[in-house]
């Protein structure tokens, strides 16, 4: 990140006494006349004229009082032009930051906050949160609000506490009792400068309602009641039972439920609650019988409609309230009990035949009544007669067929018992079943109709003979009966045959379709998308290969890796396009050294940087995109709170140009933050830094050209599993025996300067497959980077790691490295380049604390192992 120190002005003050606040100067002024111009917000954009420049001297003055809350900062664009108005220099930017003063008090979002909390809540229960803002600079003491409860009403004892930082109001104890105080009012003050004496304050009110819980047990107004009821009587309001409850009126915590504990086994009584008065009304819903029950004891209990609060649940015990009930005897009527009686009458019963007896019962004595007389009430067909004294029922006359037919075999009449003394009447129902066994059906004859047009319509007559030897004919029993002719019968038979044939045909039909048998329903296999066959027609599904199992001496190793979609490298002409001269030389030498007779097009589809188009390729290729997205998200989050909230531009580069010896598919990340468009600093960067910077700054990066066929492409290095980068951290780069002539060059840059923040945790990239991620986020100032941090899993302050693997010829590299000719040897040279704030170049690579300086130097370390080292290279700084 490249930043510029900004000039600062204080808001609300006359800063003119500090003029000039800045000066600009061009060296071109030495030999020609230079005119300085400034532009931007506050100059030629509203608010106009806050800054002016002396066009000859380049002195910039501030002319007005500024308000940070209106314009937190200004960017002054400075130009130097010659007499012809041509720019002599590239435009410079000067950020002028407006320093905040505490000129804004806190403002509560509401004048009165409303909250509520249940009584009996535990201590420290959150009640509400107050919200206030301060327009002064965020994250500044001027906008830091401290909350404080000034007063409480009722003020018996403080019941609430407030978090001075968050404004959260919580209960102080668990003694809140709605039955004592149903509401509290608080006065709260918010003061900026964290409540300091020099802060500005505002005040608000909080109204806290105490919510009811069912923490009071109801009870009846009286502990016992005594009532008297008459037998055989119903009562709709026999007794009122008032219930007392201290909980909130009309709530379920207050409304009582009265229930019977005992005594109401006959279900004579019921209690109905009046929920507005909390009074239970005792009713008699089933008459009591004095002769059966003369006294009884009801026992009732009471609870609430709502469950009891857990704080009193254990204290609740059912308390019985006794109701003594006395049943009074009344003189009762004579009644038919049961109220109806059924008799059987047959055709053989003669006149005055005694059908049965139906007498009324005296309820007081339980025996037949002696005070009533009986008369027939409803008497269909005048069939029966009753003896007025004894209640004996007789046949008035022999039942005829006509009577039987008229009554349809059933007789239903009534008799009355009349008590002339009491002038009361009781009615009993008499039912008589007229059994038809004596009425014999003599003959049933079917007579065909003579209508030839409707041969199937016939009329059936029955001939009935009764015991009078009368023959009754012509009684139509069935009319328009359906008749089937031979043709109809034939059709019916055909129909049944067809119906029987259908299931047989269904069994024989092969609906599933024989294999290869053409059309038919094709069963959809489970766990599939129906007819989608991804790989069936296009060949086998690509298999992700375990790179660790790839034989290193296999000439097709690259094809294997490419198939798996891991980013492998070629190290021919591609990187040389962006390399400096030295690197280019190095690259060519590498090419010569590690070349293999493999086609140059093998790796092209994975070359270049991981931009949008290549992201798609990654998906297709098999790079773990979930990891990529997670990585970027966390990376962005790590920068989100960066100082001054500047946007960050992240770039992820897939190091397919790394070359032999690197873990397959290394990934680098680089972030440039800021608006500095002066990219001359790129000149000092290595090619990989430069490429990263170009990508980050949105510049188009030329794709790597195809390899020159005349340049025999080399094979990439051995494919290492990611964990094999670990030996590199200890100075032991993994090498393949078959690529013994290898040079490993690593670059590491460490951030320096103020304002770095704590690193965000980044998941171990090595757990995601063949991808090595080099972290790039800034680190906290307490972290002292060590050049030994090459373990990518732990390197939290490495920006970019470059590794070039290959033989190098020539004696001088960068003028610093003495490189032996490795083309035919097996020596390995590890070069680390460390950008660190140090003016010297310690050979021991002990880097001073980068926080202390803003200078950046590049340190290169050359580690030359002994010759003949293969594979297990041990390097020591």
């Amino acid at each position: 990140e490249w930043i510029k120190f900004a000039a600062a002005c204080r808001e609300g003050e006359d800063n003119s006494k500090r003029n000039p606040i800045a000066k600009i100067h061009s060296d071109c002024a030495a030999n020609q006349q230079v005119t300085y111009h400034i532009s931007g917000v506050g100059i030629d954009q509203p608010p106009y004229g806050i800054f002016v420049v002396n066009q000859k001297t380049g002195e910039i003055n501030i002319t007005s009082i500024v308000d940070r809350e209106v314009t937190p900062f200004f960017i002054i664009y400075c130009r130097a032009v010659n007499a012809q108005g041509q720019d002599l220099e590239r435009v410079l930017e000067l950020r002028v930051r407006i320093l905040d003063i505490n000129d804004n008090p806190p403002v509560f979002s509401m004048s009165t906050f409303l909250g509520q909390i249940e009584e009996n809540s535990n201590a420290n229960t959150l009640v509400m949160r107050l919200n206030a803002t301060d327009a002064d600079e965020p994250n500044n003491l001027n906008s830091k609000i401290a909350f404080k409860i000034i007063s409480q009403e009722p003020s018996d004892s403080p019941m609430f506490i407030i978090n001075r930082n968050t404004g959260e109001i919580r209960t102080m104890n668990n003694f809140l009792d709605r039955e004592q105080y149903g509401q509290y009012s608080l006065a709260v003050r918010g003061s900026d400068r964290d409540g300091g004496a020099d802060g500005m304050s505002a005040q608000c009110e909080c109204s806290i309602k105490i919510l009811d819980v069912n923490d009071n047990i109801p009870y009846t107004e009286l502990s016992s009641y005594s009532i008297t009821v008459k037998e055989n009587a119903l009562y709709s309001e026999l007794l009122k039972i008032r219930v007392i409850d201290l909980d909130e009126e009309f709530s379920a915590n207050w409304i009582a439920v009265i229930f019977f504990i005992s005594g109401n086994e006959g279900n004579w009584f019921a209690i109905e609650m009046n929920e507005r008065t909390n009074v239970g009304i005792l009713k008699v819903i089933k008459p009591l019988d004095y002769e059966a029950v003369k006294n009884l004891q009801l026992s009732i209990g009471v609870r609430n409609k709502a469950e009891f609060h857990h704080s009193i649940m254990s204290r609740y015990k059912v308390t019985a309230t006794a109701i003594s009930v006395t049943v009074l005897n009344v003189i009762e009527d004579s009644v038919f009990r049961p109220g109806s009686k059924t008799f059987i009458v047959t055709r053989n019963m003669e006149q005055n035949y005694k059908v049965g007896e139906f007498v009324a019962i005296d309820l007081d004595t339980g025996g037949p009544s002696t005070t009533v007389r009986y008369v027939m009430g409803n008497n269909p067909a005048d069939l029966l007669a009753i003896d007025s004294k004894t209640g004996i029922i007789t046949l008035r006359k022999k039942v005829t067929w006509d009577q039987y037919h008229m009554l349809n075999g059933k007789y239903k009449g009534t008799i009355l018992s009349i008590d002339d003394a009491l002038q009361r009447t009781c009615t009993g129902t008499v039912l008589v079943n007229l059994e038809d066994g004596d009425w014999e059906i003599l003959k049933t004859t079917t007579i065909k109709a003579d209508d030839r047009d409707k041969p199937e319509h016939t009329t059936t007559f029955s001939t009935i003979k009764n015991t009078d030897d009368r023959v009754i004919t012509g009684v139509p029993l069935i009319k328009d009966n359906v008749h089937f002719g031979p043709a109809g019968i034939g059709l019916l038979i055909m129909g049944f045959l067809v119906l029987g044939l259908v299931p047989f045909l269904l069994i024989c039909c092969d609906c599933g379709g024989a294999p290869g048998g053409g059309a038919g329903f094709e069963p959809v296999p489970e766990c599939s998308d129906g007819a989608i066959h991804s790989w069936a027609v296009e060949g086998p599904q690509p298999q992700l290969m375990d790179l660790t199992q790839i034989p290193l001496d296999n000439a097709n190793v690259i094809e294997c890796v490419d198939t798996s979609g891991v980013y492998t490298n070629e190290y021919c002409g591609r990187e040389t396009q962006d390399m400096g001269e030295e690197e280019r030389m190095r690259g060519f030498e590498l090419t010569d050294a590690v070349k293999t007779p493999r086609g140059p097009e093998t790796c092209q589809e994975y070359s270049g940087t991981l931009r949008r188009n290549s992201m798609r390729e990654c998906r297709e290729g098999g790079l773990n995109m979930n990891f990529m997205e997670s990585y970027f998200c966390q990376k962005a989050y790590a920068y989100a709170d960066e100082e001054e909230g500047r946007p960050s531009n992240d770039c992820l580069l897939i190091y397919d140009i790394e070359g032999v010896g690197s873990p397959a598919g290394s990934v680098g990340c680089c972030s440039f933050i800021g608006e500095d468009l002066d990219d001359s600093f790129l000149d000092n960067l290595g090619p990989k830094f430069k490429k990263l910077a170009d990508i980050t700054l949105g510049k188009s990066v030329e794709p790597y050209p195809d390899l020159d066929p005349s340049c025999p492409p080399e094979s990439t290095g051995p494919i290492y599993p990611p964990q094999e980068t670990e030996p590199l951290a200890s100075g032991c780069p993994p090498l393949s025996p078959c690529y013994g002539t290898t040079t490993v060059i690593s670059e590491s840059t460490y951030p320096s300067g103020p304002g770095v923040q704590h690193p965000m945790p980044i998941p171990d990239p090595l757990g995601y497959g063949n991808v090595t991620v080099t972290e790039s986020y800034a680190t906290s100032g307490t972290l002292k980077p060590s050049v030994h941090i090459h373990d990518n899993r732990h390197a939290s302050n490495v920006l970019v790691t470059e590794r070039v693997v290959g033989p190098i010829s020539g004696a001088d590299l960068h003028g610093m490295l003495e490189m032996p000719d490795l083309r035919d040897g097996s020596n390995v040279i590890v070069t680390e380049r460390v950008i660190a704030p140090s003016s010297s170049l310690p050979t021991t690579l002990t880097i001073s604390d980068p926080r202390e300086s803003s200078n950046v130097v590049v340190t290169e370390r050359v580690i030359r192992p002994t010759s003949g080292m293969m594979g297990t290279l041990a390097m020591h700084p």
Binding site: E1, W2, I3, K23, I24, V756, S854
Partner: peptide
């Protein structure tokens, strides 16, 4: 070279001090 200098308000002895703006790599 095209450079900007800004005033340092925090000098102890009251003298005006000018800082050239530098880019700094963090």
């Amino acid at each position: 070279e095209f450079q900007i200098q800004v005033r340092d308000y925090n000098t102890k002895n009251g003298t005006i001090k000018w800082h050239s703006i530098k880019r700094q790599k963090r």
